[in-house]
Each structure stands twice: as C-alpha cells, then as structure tokens.
Design a protein around this nucleic acid. Structure first.
Lengths: 234, 234
DNA sequence: TGTATAAAGTGGTACTACCACTATGGAGGC
DNA sequence: GCCTCCATAGTGGTAGTACCACTTTATACA
C-alpha cells in the first residue's frame, strides 16, 4: 500500500490527534483478516498506554467493524462485515433520518450497477446461479421457497458483478431491510406473493438474465429498472 | 436466513445477548441527534454496570458513528456521519479487500441513481447549484478552483436527488477516495486538468444538467455514464 | 494412543483514584 | 446594570489493580 515515508498525515487525520488509534490502524493495515492481534496486556505495554485506554480504542474499532474481540481467545482482524454497517444504519433510521425509501433507492442503484458489471464480467459460473434461482422459483409454489429463490436471484446478480464493494453495500442493505421487516411484521406471514405476482417476478428475472447473457449493459440496467418499477420492494 | 420465531426483538438480535448495548440502543432511539446522554457515572448506575463496562459499549457505539463523546462536555447522539463509514472502509482497503476500483464503481452507481431521482425531484433551487458549479468551472482557469467546482457539481447532483441515504453513502465514498488521493500524492500537485480535459468535463456536466432539466431520467443516467466512461476518476 | 484434567492465557468487569477539559455561576470591577 | 474573570462543579479520559469467565494449550494419566 502506501509506501511514502511521510505518511504521518492520513493516518493521524483519520483519528484526529490520537496516536493510539493511529498506531492500531497502522498495525491492522499490516495484518490480514483473521489474523490475531497481540494480547491487550502486551499491546498496552507496546503502545505505552494503560489497558483501560487501549480497550477503549479497541471498542471503537470493533464498532467500526474491523476488529472482533473474542472472550478467552483474543482479538482478531475482521473482514469488514456488512452487518456492522447495517447496525449503524438501523440505529440511524430510528433517529428519524435515513428514511426507508431512500435506502431502497440505494439498493436499486447497486443492483443496476451490478447488472452492468455482470455483463462485462460475464462469468458463466456466477451467471448460472441466476439461472438456477429462476428455475427454482418456477418449480415451486411454496411461498417460503419462492421468497428464498427471489433473494437468491438478487444475490446472484450482485455476486455476478464480481465487485466486492458492490456486494458489501448490498449485503448491508439487505441485512438492514430484513431487520426492519421483522420489526414491523414479526408474525405477519411473510408477505406471500400471489400466483400472478410470482409469474411477473419470474418474467422480470428472465429479462434481466437474458439481457446479461446478451452482453447489452444498457439493456440489463433497463431490465433491472423495469423490475423495481413494477414491483417495489421486491 | 434465520427465521426463528424466538426473535424477541430485533434490538437484542442486533447486539447478541448483551443487555447493556441493547439498553443503550433503546435509549438512543428515543433521542434526537444532538441530544445529550446522561453522564457515564449516572448511566452506569442506571444500567447497573460499572463505568468501565459502560464505557466499553459507548466506545463501540462511537465507532458505529451514532455517538460522540466530548471531553468535559458529555456524550451526544450524532447524526450518523459518513466519515465514520469512510474510516472503516479505509481500514478495509488496507486489508486487501474492497479494492479502490470497486468503490469507485459504487460511486458511479450512486450518481447515476441521483441523476434519475433529480429528474423526479426537479427542485429548481437544487438544480441551480449544478448550474452555478458549471459556470464557475467555465469562468476560472485556476486548477484548484476547477477541482473545487468539479466537486461542487457532483455534490449538487447528489443533493438534487433529495435522497438522504444516497447523499450519505456518496459522501462516505468521496471522503474515502479523497483520503486515498492525499495518501498517494501528498505533495504531488493536485493533478491539474489540461485545458482540453477541462473543456470535456464542462461539456459532460452540461449534458447531465440539460438531461435533468429535460425531465428524461434515462437520458440523465446515460449522461452520467458517458461522463465516467470518458473520464474515469473524475 | 487417547482422554481427562490442570494450567496458562485471553478478553470482560469492577472499583478506585486522579487528570484534563468544559461549562456554569457568582464575585468583583466597570 | 452589565461585563469580565475566575473558582468550582461536572464531564469524559487515563491509570492501575484485582478478579472473573471463558478458551486454548499443555500435561498427566489411563
């Protein structure tokens, strides 16, 4: 990554004038997800701060989603988890801003882009997952399986783009929107699609799938838009 | 996904079986951004935990970006800050995953969506900001002002959508990409646009602006795509 | 060789004392 | 009456200790 020697700048900028957080950030940069950090006691000595202060920063970094402390085991570098972002967004939604519709709009934007990049990527294996999700939905009429297949299709679409950031944000939003759904209708039967509606969904998915196969990025994006325009919150 | 009926509430799910975090989350939900939380000493008594444990959770929530502790003043509910997300993403980038290009691709997706919604929103005041940014870039040849005007245009476009989530994510990405730029070329003169290139940017901005004014959402999105296709990382 | 148990190591909590900073309000001057 | 200054109470931040609960590892035993 950054090799310039003068890099006191951006690191300290990230955490203001806090040298401990900056040192931790630098340490994390040298590690891979899954790696274990030194013990809090060792790290406190190494950074010349008390364990109390160290733990405070570790907590912040855990909140950011880049660390995970496991009781009895140690502290590990986490692959940034979409769920962490979802948690933050969930709290933000409660505090009035970030309305639900605006989040759904972001999700549409991400899927539209995913369709575009899936065309360029053109990975037959990943695209095959989309095919299978469509076929699954065609084959069943159990409303739970239908919903699962629906989600599988959209998830496959995102994966087919082969874009880590796209997947990350989309997962976070899915996570969040699902949390919200469970909140509002805990027991209310998962809104089951009518037979007619289900056929419409399949039709739209087919169109998206075929557009991606055809190699026409604009057509693929249009197909995604048509899907969400016709079936909001699908 | 897990559909267990035992879902007491999503609150407890959010923080596992940690009652302290759940209680804090519930408290935060009842407050507005800017509101002050009880002092740590009071809150610790109220939640029946030590100040140590309480501070640990407060640190996590601060990392999530929903709280801000100010020395000497108190702890306040924050409007979820894009910069917090940017910090997390920045660390994630260092850890190999989430490559820069994938993040830029998300930004494009968001701006494309912004153009689409700006058409629907059609707020003359917000659109006027775009106009002004274009005119500013036309009028100056100072490379710093050009860059500022460029950013102003894109920011105006995002704002014109009138979509909080869109703005939030875009700001986070802008924040992040800018941090990264400063990292790599700290002293390297801000890549100044050639005269030719500047004219091209202006042309593209004009096309986006006019498309939004015309009310054609598809045209607006196409204009955004044309912009980024011709001028990556602009 | 395999299993059970002990030991070492880890993060989590509690409590205390103190520091540095901020805001508040009252005393003094104008 | 009004403003300035400053002591003071209140706040988050840090340090250090001791201990707990859990996990992992090493050891002893069968």
């Amino acid at each position: 990554m950054t090799v310039d020697a003068t890099t006191t700048t951006s690191l300290s900028d990230l955490f203001g004038d806090d040298p401990v957080s900056a040192a931790l950030a630098a340490l994390i940069r040298t590690l891979e997800p899954g790696d274990k950090l030194p013990s809090e006691r060792d790290l406190a000595v190494q950074l010349q701060v008390s364990r109390t202060a160290l733990r405070d920063r570790l907590g912040v970094l855990e909140g950011l989603g880049v660390l995970k402390r496991r009781k009895g085991s140690g502290t590990f570098v986490e692959q940034l988890q979409p769920s962490a972002l979802a948690t933050a967004l969930n709290l933000a939604m409660g505090s009035s801003h970030l309305p639900l519709e605006s989040l759904e709009s972001v999700r549409i934007a991400l899927e539209r882009q995913a369709a575009r990049e899936a065309v360029k990527q053109s990975d037959p294996v990943l695209i095959a997952y989309m095919r299978r999700a469509i076929d699954t939905m065609k084959a069943t009429d159990d409303h739970r399986e239908v919903i699962i297949a629906d989600r599988a299709f959209h998830q496959s679409l995102l994966r087919a783009a082969g874009n880590a950031a796209l997947t990350f944000f989309a997962d976070a939003l899915t996570n969040l929107l699902q949390q919200d759904l469970e909140d509002r209708s805990a027991r209310l039967q998962h809104a089951r699609l009518s037979e007619e509606r289900q056929q419409l969904v399949i039709h739209h998915h087919e169109r998206i799938y075929e557009a991606i196969l055809s190699g026409d990025a604009d057509l693929a994006m249009a197909a995604v838009d048509a899907h969400f325009d016709a079936l909001p919150a699908s």
